[in-house]
Each structure stands twice: as structure tokens, then as C-alpha cells.
Design a protein around this nucleic acid. Sequence first.
DNA 1: TGCTGTCATTGATTTAAATCAAGTGGTCAA
DNA 2: TTGACCACTTGATTTAAATCAATGACAGCA
Lengths: 219, 219
Amino acid sequence: MHVLRQNILFSALDEEQFTRVIAGSKVIQLKEGEMLFQQQQKADYFYMLETGDIKLYRLSPDGAEKVIELIRAGQTFAEAMMFMDGGFYPVNAQAITESRLIRVEMAMFRDLLEHSPKTSLKILGYMSKRLHGLVQEIDQLSLQNAKMRVIQFLLRELPADAISPCQLQWNTPKTVLASRLSVRPETFSRILQQLTQEQLIKVDGKSIEILDIDGLKGY
Amino acid sequence: MHVLRQNILFSALDEEQFTRVIAGSKVIQLKEGEMLFQQQQKADYFYMLETGDIKLYRLSPDGAEKVIELIRAGQTFAEAMMFMDGGFYPVNAQAITESRLIRVEMAMFRDLLEHSPKTSLKILGYMSKRLHGLVQEIDQLSLQNAKMRVIQFLLRELPADAISPCQLQWNTPKTVLASRLSVRPETFSRILQQLTQEQLIKVDGKSIEILDIDGLKGY
DNA sequence: TGCTGTCATTGATTTAAATCAAGTGGTCAA
DNA sequence: TTGACCACTTGATTTAAATCAATGACAGCA
């Protein structure tokens, strides 16, 4: 079965609809560091990431880069733009590692929804969850200090049923994680070290071992 | 014409659909300080605010209150919960001033969408805009300092075509605005004073006169 | 082999904002 | 009228995180 089928956006389509989607889609390969699209570019496609890592980020007027979201394999992104007529991507998308994506034509998918209320409702539910997620994100940015944000981030990366000790692994440089968390790399480094000294985690290059989940949650 | 009709959520409904919505709706009156719903309560209704002011806020474990959104007359809220099966309100809703709302049954409205793909698409567009707005919000929280946040907030409250000098007015205590902006009341007060000294604004109780829009934008 | 550039860490210093503390003025109700 | 309770302001102090600066680790490459 096609990998797209696993994604919620496509799960409610019937065979005929799905065939049309496939016909209007294309596989994209990106090398490390390659741009997929830029902020302010016209949004004609949305994407599903098959393999690799993508960062979505914004540039402030003075050139500072803030990572809004890290996309991992299996996720779709930019699909919200589908419903904003003549919209432009609000973020830049760049491959952190070599990546393989499926590019879907928004216009076509949108037409399809006109005749598939069930799928529309599914997508509404999905977007509601995203909305909710962003509200929580705002919570974290505003209520909590840098250490809390790092801890929350680590905990959220774990599966719900994870038991300590367990392992987390990234392909991305720590600077990108820091930006995602809105802290300076120096601060990020110091916080990881604090947590290490408290026996809660163990850092080894790009992988972090979580030694004490409950300890982290206790913060 | 019914006031609901002015809202985007209801604008795409036909007469028969709209009549059903009205039948399942109810007017709610709240006194100042009264709760509308609480965090974790089952979400069966969404609302449109006719008159008054509502704050949506969250409580952190230690009791700190963070205002997520200030609702003003004409806005709907909690409608995103409609698409999350068996969801619970993620925020508390409380009247800041005496308020009058229309309460709409989610289940009923949802059923209606099943047979109205066009309306669903409109709502998807609307939710996309909200999504986009929240992304910008995250920008502001993370990239900018407290003074910037206050300035942005003031500018956003103005109509797009506003010319200085002009007037802004709230019914809410300044502490609520401060929470909305994630700063302490003391800091908020000091920032307003700084801006006053720079001849950019003039504060008089609950109303703020914007003396120099371009000056504010220049920051 | 050493050179370059990127990423990461560590220490010293600065800074913005929170916190602590005190005082003002207003409103409401006993 | 008094006193309690707000919201708000102002000043002094503390603190967390940013910034500045230096160094180390490592990869790719001439």
C-alpha cells in the first residue's frame, strides 16, 4: 500500500479519489541543506515527508532564525495553506538531512474535498488538534523558563508508554533544537549539563539517554 | 437579521440549516467575573460573544494564570473543539465584564457540516488563518522582548488604516492585558511609561492614546 | 599532515525582566 | 467615616538567560 495512505489526510479517501491524488503528486529528493520552499513563496503544494528531516523556520527582519517546527518522517506539512486562497508559505522549509518527500497539489486536493464532507471533517479534526498544540506551545513559551521548556521537549519526544531508561536520537545539530526551543545554544548546553549532573539524563553526541522520566516529570 | 449571520462560521449556511442552528442555540448572560466553562470540562458547546468581554486562560500547576486570548464582541470561540471527538475545553472562560453570548450545540452543528462540504471548506479556511495567527504569536513570544510585545499588541489593536493620533480603549484591568502579553503588571506599567516619555503614547486610566503610529512601528 | 569551518562547551559579564517591597488612589460596604 | 480590598505605580534587589569571548572537538579536504 502506498505510504500516503497511512496519513490521516488521505485515510478517508476512496480508491478513485486516492488515485487522482497520486496522479497529481510527485516525489521530491532534497540534499542536506537544500531549500524546499521559502517564506512568502506562493503556496501551491503541500508535502509529506517520507524519509529525512525538515525544519520549518522564520527569519526576523534582523536575520535571526527561529525554528517553528521540526518535521520527521511520516508527517505532512504546509497543508493548512490549502484553505487560504492565494496564500503564501509563512515559513521557510529546508532539509536538515537528505530527504525524500511527496509533493501534493493543493488545488487538486481541495477540489476533491468539495465532494467529500467526511474527509473534510477529518481534516477539521486534525487541524483542531494542531491548533490546540500551538496553544500549548504558547503556554510553554510564556509560562515556563528555559529549563522547563527543555524538559517538556524531551518528555514530548518520548512515546507515551516509555519507561526509563530510554534513548532519544536526533540527526539535527543542537543549535537547531535550541532554536526550536527558543534558547541560545549556550543555554541549551548548560541546561543539558545540569540535567546530567542531576542524574536525569546522559548526553552522548546527538543521542540523549533518559535516565529518570519521573524525575523529569517531577519538575 | 440575526447577529450570528455576521460570523464566518454561519455565513455559508442556507436558510434551512441556519434555522436548525438557531433552534439548538441559547442566549447566555454572565455577570462580571462569572465563569462560563472550566479547563477539562467536557466541550459540548461553542459560543459567540454578543456583548461584553471574555478571557480565555489557563492555570499552571502552581496556580499562575496565563491569558491565552481576549474575546471581544462578535468573536466566536471554542469552536475548534467541535472537531475533536469527546474533547475537553483546554482553557477556562470567564467574563471580565457583564456579557451576553449565544451558545451553540456542537453536535448539531457538526451534523450539519456532514452535508455541507462548502461550509466545511470555509471553516477550514478560517481555521487556517487562526493557525497562521498563532504561528505569528509564537514568533512574537520567542523572538521579541517585552517592549516589542507591548508595541505589537498596541499596533494590532488598531484598524489597518488608523492614523495617529488615535484612541484605544479597554474594559479589562491592566493586569489581564499584562498576562495576555506574558509580562508582569509592574513591567507592563513601566513599559507604558517608557513609551509615554518617548512621546509615542499617552495613558489615561483604561484608555491609551496613540500619538505616533510610525514611531511605534519604527521599533 | 595541517588547514578550515562548523558545532559544542565553558567561563565571565551584562542585561532585561521578575521579584520583593512600599505606597497611592479608588471603590465598596459595613 | 472607616477600613478592607483592589488595581496600579514606583523603587530596590535579585535572577535567569543573553551576550561576549575563548577554547576544544571533529569532519572534510587540499
